[in-house]
Each structure stands twice: as C-alpha cells, then as structure tokens.
Amino acid sequence: MFDWLEHLTDWLVFRVFGMEPGNRLAEAVHFFIYDSVKILLLLMVVVFLMGIVNSYFPVEKVRNYLSRKNLYGFEYLVASLFGVVTPFCSCSSVPLFIGFVRGGIPLGVTFAFLVTSPLVNEVAIGLFVGLFGLRVTLIYVASGILLGTISGMILSRMKLDRFLTPWVKEILAKAEREGERAAQLHLPLPKRIPQIWADVVRILKGVVPYVLVGLAIGGFMHGYIPEGYLEAYLGQKSLLAVPVATLLAVPMYANASGILPVVQVLVSKGVSLGTAIAFMMGVVGLSLPEGMLLKKVMTLKLIGIFFGVVAFCIICSGYLFNMIL
C-alpha cells in the first residue's frame, strides 16, 4: 500500500540528499521521513473515520442507552464497546462518572467504560496501524475491550459504593433510570463533515509534534542500536519485564503519541510484543493526572483499587501475548 512512499523516500534520501544506502545516518533519515509521512496519513484517515462513527454515538446517547436497557450481563461488554467509539478527554472523566452514576448505571459498568474509552481511542488506533500494522492493531483493540469488560466485572464484585466521596453517595441514592428521550435532530452526513474535519485538524495539531519527536528518537535508535540487542533484557524469557514495563508506563501521561514510535523501534530490536503492548496500555490507559482528577468523586482508596485492578489485567494480558504471539 505504501510502496510509492518507499520509492519516493529512497529517491529523496539516496538521490536528492546524496546519502549512501546502508549508512547509519541515511537509514535513520530514511526511517524518519518514511514513517512520519505514512503515520500522519493513517492517523488522519483513522481519526476522521472514528469521528464519523462518534458523531452518531455521542456520549449522551450512550448513557441513555445503558441506563434504559437491561442487557442481561452483557452491559459490561456493551459499555466497553461504547468506550471505543467515544473519544475521551481526561478532563471529562468526572462529569462523565457522575452522569453515569446519576443515570442509575452500576459502578462496575461505568468503570468498564472508563477503562476502555481512553485505552482504545482514535489516536492510539491510528498510530498502531501505522507503526505495527493491522494485525497487532486488532489484537490491541480486542484486548482493550476485553480488559475494560473484565476489569468492570471484577470491580463490580468489590462493593465499591462505600469508597465514593459523600456528595457522590448522595447522588447515587437519588439515581434513577432514564426513560426514552425525544429523538434528536437528525443531521445528514454531509452536514456533519465540517465539524468532524475541524476535530481531525485539532486532534492532529495536538499530537503531531509528539509523534515527530518520537519518530526522530526512534529513527536515531533504529540506525544505531543493533538488531536484537534488547532481546536479552526484555525478550520473552524475562519474567519481570511485563510488570516493570506496566509500572514504568503509568507516570508517562499525554506523551503516548511520542512514546509509541519509540516502542515500535524497541520491538524491532528484540523487546517482545506482549511486554510492549502492556507498556503501551499502561501509557495510554492509566494516567496519574487522570487519577488525581477522580479524587473529586472517589476516595484515594478507590482510585488505588481501580488502578490496581486495571494494572493487574494489563499485566495478565502482557504475559498472555508473550505466550501466544
């Protein structure tokens, strides 16, 4: 699909810049140019497509649906799936949490949504397709959905209501299920496009600088670290690699778009994919600043339990991937 780009980059680096093929700097420059163009194109396409999907599933509709329907045990999975199509902004997590609780949606189901929504978002998917290809992307998305579902189920067993802050308990006591809402005004797709496109531009502007820095670092490592160098430390045989990678990932917030390109290079140098995926899930899905925002609605203990359960599930999936991939 990207042969044309490969040729174009070859021409640019080896002919126009006059660099020697095989030279380290040449390889680094080639990697940087080829990957940045490819990833930016893919990011644009994915963010745009996800924007269209999201425009038909605004979060208000999602809440109304989850609150209204009895899903016979499938509500965790459904909430998690909705988490995929709704873009997530960590600053919205508190109003979202309250809104869900107020609508009578059980805590565990709310958590299922809260786990998957940041984990499987449009930027992460776009970067994954560009860096790792479709197969790994599908694995990542599927495990993100499962992770939200399972974490939500585990958390619902723990009777966590008592760890909410007092004012949220009050809201919980008054929670009621919603009725069918009046149908919202139906806009045809062409009329939705300008708004969706504006979002694409805004999102790309926000992540592109990080991606480019990440790719520059990645390009450098690509040219200078020998293949297989990290195999000994972070390959499949190292048992500690998965938990260590997950824990390292938690403090790295907001730079997910810069970190993913570096991780891709690490994988090509011998880090096993399960470890890398666990690390990336930690980066994208668990962030300390988000945890701190949640303090308004949860006690620290509950935030700790929430992060603990999700981290545990991430570590398990890391091991699982190391075994099967």
């Binding site: 979060v59 208000e60 902004c89 109003p95 979202l96 309250i98 809104g99 869900f100 107020r102 809201i171």
Partner: peptide, 8 residues
C-alpha cells in the same frame, strides 16, 4: 453537574 452534562 447541575446542568446535567457528561462531557465538557
């Protein structure tokens, strides 16, 4: 939250 919104 008094305005019953879930996304800011």
């Amino acid at each position: 939250m008094q305005y019953d919104i879930i996304s800011t």
